[in-house]
């Protein structure tokens, strides 16, 4: 190898070494830049926004809230599934709502709206409260923060006073008032149900009222 060839080769190697070093520096720069950009835009602790295709299902879900008087309300469900198009709405299986004063409302299915703080219950809705009332209906909508229940389907129920059926109903003031509308039929037992040896109509689908 002549001197000229050797000089030529070493300048080639030098150029290659330079190019390689520059390439490495550029690659490192790109990576650091990407990381920095990612960190700035996403911000620490920000939950990644759900895309509409993703569905989140919780098992043994539990939600707690408060009504207007500040008493706690707990909603549990076997499964809770966020809705595709509206993440605030959660479809519940076997939901059950329990209030501080011992009222329990459950149903096979329901829809909880976190934003509106409502719980809509469907199919076989059952409400039992501490005063001994036992109501059934095929739908109920709970306005949790207002402590109100709205029912657009017939109600069948029994309680300390006796039995009641009606077309629609509303329970307001945290269960203190029960309003029934349309074809209200009551059977009142003066002195209490057992004072007359009256069979409890709590379990029968329709109370003992004969049609006229």
């Amino acid at each position: 190898m002549t001197l000229a060839q050797a000089r030529k080769r070493s300048s080639l190697v030098g150029m290659l070494r330079l190019a390689f070093t520059a390439g490495a520096a550029i690659a490192a720069g790109i990576m650091v830049g990407h990381l920095a950009a990612n960190a700035v835009t996403s911000g620490p602790g920000k939950i990644e926004q759900l895309t509409s295709e993703e569905v989140v299902t919780m098992v043994n879900a539990r939600f707690t809230g408060r009504d207007e008087t500040g008493s706690t309300i707990v909603i549990t469900a076997d499964t809770a599934q966020r809705q595709r198009d509206n993440p605030e709405q959660i479809a519940l299986q076997n939901p059950r709502l329990v209030t501080e004063d011992g009222t329990e409302i459950d149903a096979p299915s329901g829809l909880y709206d976190q934003a509106a703080q409502t719980l809509a219950l469907f199919e076989d809705v059952r409400l039992i409260d501490a005063q001994g009332y036992d109501f059934r209906s095929t739908s109920a909508k709970m306005f949790i923060s207002e402590g109100r229940v709205d029912g657009i389907d017939p109600l069948v129920g029994s309680g300390p006073l006796g039995d009641v059926t009606c077309d629609t109903y509303e329970i307001v003031e945290d269960g203190d008032r029960l309003r029934c509308r349309g074809n209200v039929n009551m059977m009142i037992f003066p002195g209490g149900r057992d004072a007359h040896g009256n069979a409890s109509a709590a379990n029968t689908a329709t109370p003992a009222v004969d049609e006229e």
């Binding site: 309680g159 006073l161 006796g162 009641v164 009606c166 008032r177 029960l178 309003r179 029934c180 509308r181 349309g182 074809n183 209200v184 039929n185 009551m186 059977m187 009142i188 037992f189 003066p190 007359h196 009256n198 009222v209």
Partner: peptide, 11 residues
């Protein structure tokens, strides 16, 4: 027992 019919009731 007292049987009651009405359009609206409130307990």
């Amino acid at each position: 027992p007292i049987r009651v019919n009405a359009d609206t009731s409130e307990v």
